[in-house]
Design a protein around this nucleic acid. Structure first.
Lengths: 245, 245
DNA sequence: TTGCCGCCTTGATGCAGATCAAGGCGCGAA
DNA sequence: TTCGCGCCTTGATCTGCATCAAGGCGGCAA
């Protein structure tokens, strides 16, 4: 792990209003500011390993990390995707159950675990925010279970693309309901396959099929252009009731 | 929903030390005691529906409930199994994203949402316990993602059985690491299939195969006897490293 | 006791996605 | 500029599970 300290002020922090600190008042923020430190992990680097004890909790400031588990025979399943503002770690317990790796260069805002646990106890705004974020993650994980258990390969890929678009929209504040969108995929085909519970080959074939159907364009393997989001959404097969995104 | 009030004291409550109230001191417990009420939902009854607003949060006192989502075309995936001590609801938000149904007769210990949210604010022991429980549920959901994304039908059924055994062990305090175990399945074959992301037929065939292999006995469709847990565990294909349970 | 109904099992067949197997393409190093 | 190496795509084939289709079994009502 490549350490690099920085002195960015929380006030100017890009995730100030979305991360675990989102609901802090100035006093609380000052406390967090006092114990935080920045770390950069290069693309491909390990951030944490299942079972290993870690004494820092952190927020993702920039970049993209994956949460996954690898079985004894090499089968691998991604179970979480960490983007800016997402939280890493489990207050109250030192060990994680999953591996966390940097999919791109990742910058973390870290807190010593003991110090952060003290803050949770003293500042209900942090505790409450963390509970909300964890409940949101639980909903995401459960939607993902539906995807892995019941959706076809094509539906999975479409869901993946739509979720990236949606996530990007909430980050930039912009909300495209329709119209063309350009996406830079933070993940390789192999990682996407692990995300979706498919093989690389099937994933690749689905991208090809979507391209042939005119639903996406692929100027580069890592760049996806969606001419019209509305075309993609009917195939997502979401919820009960009617198909939607 | 079939209402039935009762005046069981928290002190004698079977889930007193495992539920959301587990870490309460006597004062906090008294407050909860003041706002709680019991409800019984008969087998097959709806406890909550996705999107619908509910003004109670509850703990499962007895019985078994399922958390699931149904797609527009009828495909269904279970994403959670609620057993005694598990918590239902999302403090801070009125609507759920999933359907909750009683798989057996279920008794709930309910709290008015507003009142409970006030308690979370005033009593850190409840807030902390809820965070821990939510983090635990997240881990369970993620392990389930691995099962749905990468395990074979046989491995899924074995995992299901082992998870029931383990859960039962923590409830009764008894820990069998080996030796014969008898299980009463709280779920029908259809529900097990929805749990495991399989069809009824495949699920049934896997039970048959395990029986033919001598790994289980099935005196009744709903009763499973595992002559030796140790025989089942090597096939579970858990974690990294070596196969284990 | 009989008959019905829901749930479960078993068999035959089909198909989506895995697996096996070649290349192609783009990018960085020499 | 060329080479080599990842990463991605495409094709051929295989297979585990879904789907389609019959019954069997057990509990309950009459």
């Amino acid at each position: 792990m490549n350490l690099r300290l920085a002195r960015t002020s929380c006030i100017e922090c890009p995730i100030r209003h979305r991360a675990v600190c989102a609901e802090c008042d100035d006093t609380e923020l000052a406390v967090l500011e006092g114990i935080k430190s920045y770390v950069t992990v290069p693309k491909g680097g390990r951030i944490a390993e299942a079972g290993e004890s870690l004494d820092h909790l952190s927020s993702v400031v920039s970049g993209c990390a994956t949460v996954s588990k690898t079985l004894a025979d090499g089968r691998r399943q991604m179970v979480g995707l960490l983007l800016p503002s997402d939280f890493i770690g489990r207050p109250g317990r030192a060990t994680l159950s999953f591996d966390i790796e940097a999919a791109t260069d990742v910058t973390l805002c870290r807190f010593q675990r003991r110090a952060f646990e003290a803050i949770i106890r003293s500042s209900p705004n942090v505790a409450r925010r963390l509970l909300t974020m964890t409940l949101d993650e639980l909903d995401v994980a459960r939607d993902w279970q539906v995807l892995l258990g019941r959706l076809t390969a094509r539906e999975r890929v479409i869901h993946f693309l739509l979720s990236l678009v949606r996530r990007e929209a909430t980050e930039t504040g912009a909300a495209h309901r329709s119209g063309p969108v350009r996406l830079e995929l933070p993940l390789s085909r192999e990682m996407i396959a692990d995300y979706l519970g498919l093989t690389i080959e099937t994933t690749s074939r689905q991208f090809t099929a979507l391209r042939k159907d005119g639903l996406i364009k692929t100027p580069t393997a890592r760049t996806i252009v969606v001419p019209d989001l509305v075309d993609l959404m009917p195939e997502a097969m979401d919820e009960d009731g009617a198909p939607s995104a």
